[in-house]
Design a binder for these strands. Structure first.
Lengths: 222, 222
DNA sequence: ACCTGAACACCGTTCAAGT
DNA sequence: ACCTGAACACCGTTCAAGT
């Protein structure tokens, strides 16, 4: 069984600086994405990353200061998958819907990045900053008072991050099991939801919350 | 420098089963909370936990299957700090406000638990299940259609989890730094927000989103 | 059933040596 | 500047042995 990280390189590289650098940030980012795609975030270790790039683990530290830096590289790459095309090209509500759904989908398979993004200074991630520029300009142009733009975006993002976790939750997460008798109200609510719903449960909750946030924030326009 | 985990026990316990069990789940939970309170989640290692409880690390595995189980114990304990007293004792909106703010505050200093709770089957955490019983009954009694109770709670929780991270974000998280010139819209929004705001930024965003969600979900009542 | 003690297979990171 | 190779200080977890 191949773990996808077996080095193809036949001859061993000598110690010492190579004529041309073997590593760069873009290569590290894409190798990390391949590793994550194959085995998830458990598969993303500095050793596995080095093996995929055919270098010694310590070579990585010439390009990043820590594994956290690698996560930031991946995060900033994913941010370019978030769809901001709706802003300035139609109703504000539609632009927010497109943005929010694509944002949630981009990070639903990358939830280990959420603790990283949520507290990451924007300066450290250029594409993330570019995304904020488009979105905040879109909010301002739609008539959201300037002082409310940042908290409105933060509220939406908080909801998006939490909802990304929800996508990965097991189907039976709300099954009360043998506790059903002692929790009749909750059990009935879970049953009723399960009976009616055709969409994915996480999508129903996300749609419900997103429309509420859009309505509430949209009402701030002047 | 004492790390708070130095064992006080002078005489070494012999190998073999002691007359009375030294460990129990409650003791493990409280030792974990002490460790977290002292050094945060970095300080919560199985070795440190064992040291605080004056046992060998392997002894813990007679009571929990893994470190994940320890995190679930802590999570379920914290859930009892969430204030559900408003449900059935006044307007639904006020009950949700009290619940949501206390929920966010309880987990803002325990964000490493969020990935655990967000995907945890409710059966595994009795106090968490009890919280859902009170909240779902409160939503139903307020007139939320039964099939919408679960998605409404999930939407609110997703927002709460994401907002808990926001509380721990550094103050300068939105400082565009030397990129300010290339992101004029965002930079202006950040400045305007910083000038007007007196409350903590995370509280402003949380209040804004929470009121929008309460209004949107409250409109479902019939 | 519930401890101890030794061991295992990792992990991220550091650093001297090499070119 | 940028690589190799060896080492360090951990980590969670397993398991035989003991009572």
């Amino acid at each position: 069984m191949d773990d996808g990280g077996t080095p193809v390189r036949a001859v061993r590289r000598r110690a010492g600086r190579p004529a041309a650098a073997v590593l760069d940030l873009s290569g590290i980012t894409h190798a990390a994405l391949e590793l994550i795609g194959g085995k998830g975030y458990d598969g993303l270790t500095m050793a596995a990353l080095a093996r995929k790039l055919e270098v010694a683990p310590s070579a990585l530290y010439n390009h990043v200061e820590s594994k956290h830096d690698v996560l930031v590289l991946v995060e900033d790459h994913l941010m370019s998958l978030v769809d901001v095309s709706g802003f300035g090209a139609g109703p504000w509500e539609d632009a927010v819907r497109t943005w929010a759904w694509s944002y949630r989908d981009a990070f639903a398979t990358h939830t280990p990045l959420i603790p990283v993004i949520a507290v990451l200074p924007v300066t450290d991630a250029p594409r993330t900053l570019a995304m904020y520029e488009v979105v905040s300009t879109g909010f301002r142009d739609a008539g959201i008072p300037e002082a409310r733009v940042v908290p409105a975006i933060v509220a939406l993002e908080s909801f998006i991050f939490g909802s990304a976790y929800d996508v990965t939750a097991p189907a039976n997460i709300f099954d009360p099991g043998n506790m059903a008798e002692s929790t009749p109200g909750f059990t009935a609510a879970v049953r009723s939801f399960g009976d009616e719903q055709h969409e994915r449960p996480a999508d129903v909750a996300f749609g419900l919350g997103l429309e509420a946030l859009i309505a509430g924030i949209g009402a701030l326009r002047e």
